[in-house]
Amino acid sequence: MNTSIIKLVQHSLGVSGVLGQCSPALASQLHTSAPLCRVVSGKYRITKKRDKPLTYEMANPPHYIAHRKSWNSWNTSNLKDGLRRSETALEDEFIRRFMTGTWHGLVCSEIIVKRQFNHIRVAGIIRRAVSPTKMYFLLGYTEELLSNWLQCPVTLELQTVDSFKDVVFKYI
């Protein structure tokens, strides 16, 4: 908090104008959007019939992160002096969309993206709707294409369940 105020002061003084341009670390200190959506973001509306299925991850609102549930993206970009902040966020979103699109109608959970060193591990829960052979094809395809796109080793860590019902935590 203190540092960001200093940065803001510096900015207003015009000292860090040049600094802010060349270093993304300084430019991303100010956040404005999260408090506005505090009430609705990451939460699900209750339906009339109370028949909307929620997974465990969906059932717990964001303030339970690190208490009852865990993060969906694991990386060190957002720590102090972290590298590639925007790139990391964008790539994670790309991985999520790529996974849900490639494993079409099979993904039953959030896609978890874990980064260690230059290694990306992608975890998720998959429905057993296609044969294991096809799953292996998709596995190989996803790993290879993502590692070529992101230019680092990508590993898929999938678990399979019989049906989507197995991951439903409650209905609202």
Binding site: Y136, F137, L139, G140, Y141, T142, E143, L145, N148
Partner: peptide, 10 residues
Amino acid sequence: SAEAGRKAAA
């Protein structure tokens, strides 16, 4: 199969 997938990606 896994290798065929990787080949498809390549």
